[in-house]
């Protein structure tokens, strides 16, 4: 556990890091970024908490079992969306033209619309959940292993 200054600053900063990660994930079909990048941003926030507080403190609020379930559900949503359009072809973008995320933007540069992209925003959310939860579980497991802590189940 680091000093009180570091802990206070980390407490204030984690909100902004999480919001930025969620922004990168949710706007993956409009601006540079996407599920993998936004998930990595969220994991960087988790690593900051892990450095500022000890892994013993973080273990109380971030359970590895929950992270595993979140990662698996993200992977299942991803594969389920890929299989949803199997009637035409694997990974068919079946949501283009429907009211849900189905608007089609004008060709060329433009400001963009959040309700575009077909199933790409949903895929971004699934991959972001998967990357954030999976890499958090990896970092937490490594920290707990190096500090000699044990997980209670």
């Amino acid at each position: 556990m680091l000093s009180k200054i570091v802990r206070t600053v980390a407490n204030q900063l984690i909100l902004f890091i999480l919001i930025f990660g969620l922004y990168v994930i949710a706007h993956g079909h409009l601006t540079p970024g996407g599920g993998f990048q936004g998930g990595a941003v969220i994991v960087s926030g988790v690593v900051m908490l892990l450095v500022a507080f000890s892994s013993k403190e973080l273990k109380k609020s971030l359970r590895e079992r929950t992270l595993s379930i979140m990662e698996s559900s993200g992977a299942l949503i991803f594969i389920g969306l890929a299989f949803a359009g199997i009637g035409i072809v694997f990974f068919y973008n079946f949501l283009v033209g429907t009211p849900i995320f189905g608007r089609i933007p004008a060709t060329g540069p433009g400001p963009g619309d959040i309700w575009t992209g077909g199933f790409i925003p949903l895929m971004n959310l699934a991959v972001g959940l998967k990357v954030a939860a999976g890499l958090s579980a990896v970092v937490l497991a490594m920290a707990l292993f190096s500090s000699g802590e044990e997980i209670e189940e």
């Binding site: 993956g28 079909h29 601006t31 608007r103 619309d113 575009t116 992209g117």
Partner: peptide
Amino acid sequence: TGSNNVVTSVVFD
């Protein structure tokens, strides 16, 4: 694909 970000449309579609 309806996605303004062409890189993402390549990666996911």
